[in-house]
Design a protein around this nucleic acid. Structure first.
Lengths: 197, 197
DNA sequence: GTCTATAGCCCGATAGAC
DNA sequence: GTCTATCGGGCTATAGAC
């Protein structure tokens, strides 16, 4: 009547397998993007079989949606100067280490429509409330530019691994971009091509 | 002995078909990236059949390599201020209209290794000789940042189509980025997080 | 030369054995 | 519950009919 009690129960074993699958999926999606990552490869890296992956997570699309995510940024508030510093700090964090869940999303954003939607939504969100903290009537454009610059810098560091960007200390990069961000927040475009300020 | 002379010779007809294939391939690669673009779809859009596409261009990889390209930027020279203005003008051109050959490359750069190599090479090239025109010992990093910012802005406009960036006049964007570029060229990082300049 | 038919492969997903 | 075998379908690439 009494069932034997193994050292690791079935439930525990299943949990471990699920976690191995999730970790493998995150890594492979981040490395190769949605299309080039196969259920078979995920199963192999997680040391299980493709059938289990499908059984646990339903479909490749669902698995991607589960492991790829962009952590929402903290809302931007305060004076323009505080907003700029906040955005710089946030960029510094992304440069320090971007979780592979985010890299999976970024890697796929140009070719997987679902990922494109997520990235657009994340940037647009941040853009909307950043713009509210900026003076001037082209605040949305300037906030969008900050989003684009941030994205370009993160891409250059983690995905394209450009010279210099690849291994510079995050503070060196944010220090260099500080004048950029403050200029964009304040909205002081310079008009002359030849006069220097 | 004399062969009849049709109004459009076989050679002309073939030329026209090849051109239709090339145009279709550029458009589809730019829209959907390397993996999601199929030879079948290219043939359908060019109003031919997949066999001919393969016959004319050998393989999907070769066709992509033929139609996707990044036009090399003009070399950066002159004083730091001139270099900054040159890079801004170059960015303005890319914002005005990016050829679909380039968009095809950019669309695929995160998931197709060949495209990644090409984009890296293009950025690194520009970065190298830009750095030579900059003062300071972290010139390579600053030049790399300008490359990353440029890439982010172009991506935001043409591929992600972010609010504001999508339809702003190029001059409005370059005007806003002018202080950024000049600051990065000169290498005047601001150090204090709380003091404003 | 142009196009049709299909080979050969790998995929995501499923059914059923254990 | 876990895993194996396989289905149905899409792809690139090729072979052969016209």
């Amino acid at each position: 009547m009494a069932t034997s009690q193994p050292r690791t129960s079935r439930a525990e074993q299943r949990q471990k397998t699920e976690n191995r699958i999730l970790t493998a999926a995150r890594r492979l999606f981040a490395d190769s993007g949605y299309d080039r990552t196969t259920i078979r490869a995920i199963a192999a890296e997680a040391k299980t079989d493709p059938g289990l992956v499908m059984r646990y997570f339903g479909s490749k699309k669902e698995l991607f949606a589960l492991v790829a995510e962009i952590a929402p940024d903290e809302p931007v508030t305060g004076t323009p100067e505080q907003a700029a510093e906040h955005l710089l700090t946030s960029l510094g964090d992304k440069l320090e280490a971007e979780p592979s869940a985010t890299l999976a999303m970024l890697r796929s954003m140009l070719t997987h429509p679902e990922a494109a939607k997520e990235v657009r939504a994340a940037v647009t969100n941040q853009q909307r409330d950043a713009a509210a903290a900026f003076p001037g009537d082209d605040a949305v454009l300037r906030a969008g530019l900050i989003g684009a610059l941030t994205l370009g810098t993160v891409l250059g560091r983690h995905l394209l691994r450009l010279d210099g960007l690849r291994d510079a200390p995050p503070e060196a990069i944010t220090a260099l971009l500080r004048p950029c961000f403050h200029a964009l927040v304040d909205g002081e475009a310079e008009h002359a091509a030849d006069g220097q300020r």
